[in-house]
């Protein structure tokens, strides 16, 4: 539901990352890392991005989304594991004091920019 705002942020960051000397450059692809514990639905994000990116250097760009798993560490027994189901207790000792190592990412990793044909 807030994917429209996220799409706009992606466009702002990506557009500002195009080197100034690449005049008329077009962004072909945006590489994103989105954690499974983030509140973003990739399909809605793609839909919103398609609308918001019109008339920007990102029009028609592909959103390449790498979904990162939820990695947890037990603060009691130091076990590390991947959380696939919404169960946040240690698979080894059953403890509930967890550190979430990854899974909340919502990052732009890179953009792939095509220079205009001379």
């Amino acid at each position: 539901m807030h994917e429209m705002g996220i799409a706009q942020q992606i466009i702002d960051i990506a557009a500002a990352s195009i080197p100034a000397e690449m005049t008329g450059a077009r962004v072909e692809r945006v590489n994103l890392k989105i954690g499974r514990l983030s509140a973003v639905v990739p399909e809605s994000l793609r839909f919103c991005f398609g609308i918001v990116s019109q008339d920007t250097p990102l029009a028609g760009a592909e959103l390449a989304i790498e979904e990162t798993p939820i990695l947890a560490r037990c603060k009691d027994c130091d076990t590390r594991w991947t959380i696939d189901e919404p169960v946040f207790t240690c698979t080894s000792c059953g403890g509930g004091r967890l550190e979430i190592l990854s899974g909340r990412e919502l990052d732009i990793v890179s953009i792939e920019v095509a220079e205009r044909e001379p």
Partner: peptide, 10 residues
């Protein structure tokens, strides 16, 4: 095509 590193939180 040129890949440009961004690495920023959205």
């Amino acid at each position: 095509t040129q890949e440009i590193k961004v690495v920023r939180r959205v």
